[in-house]
Amino acid sequence: MKCQQCERPATFHITELTGGKPQELHLCEDHARTYLTSSSGGEPTGAGGMAAALAQQVQQMAIGQTAEELARLDQQACPVCGITFYEFRSQGRLGCPHDYVAFQPQLEPLIMNVHGELEHVGKRPHCTPGSSEKRTQLIRMRREMKESVENEKYERATELRDQIRRIETDQAS
């Protein structure tokens, strides 16, 4: 892929999350540097945190890793919601709470770049959820049910619907 601003190959793939809709940029090293230092692409806000973090991360990932390995990381999908890391990079939004676990190795450097910390020290819910396992299970089952309907596997879909209802009524009681 060529840089969007010159003929050289694009080595930086930046997802700009600040302002309006996420925007993908493919730039060579020089243009990437110019972009990232020029108060984040003409926004009067100067909120370049996320874009800079993603770019730096791609650079870090590129060191000592082949293109195949990069592609493999991008293709990795969350077992709960099915979103790939590539989809996250292009939309700038995660698919479900479990992504923070599924993409932990990719997300941690990014979070570190944005916040400078990895540990929450603020308030906590008074009643912490008993088992987060059960909750992500619900997300997974609802997705499977939808797919079963789409693939006309109605028996499986009915089974799943009943299981989901059981879990939901358990929680309510």
Partner: peptide, 22 residues
């Protein structure tokens, strides 16, 4: 029940809001 992670705090759709979400 809010989406909450022991170490990362309140989980948000964009990682720029994670933690306090504030």
């Amino acid at each position: 029940t809010y989406a909450f992670h022991e170490r990362l705090g309140y989980l948000t759709a964009c990682p720029t809001n994670v933690g306090t979400g504030m």
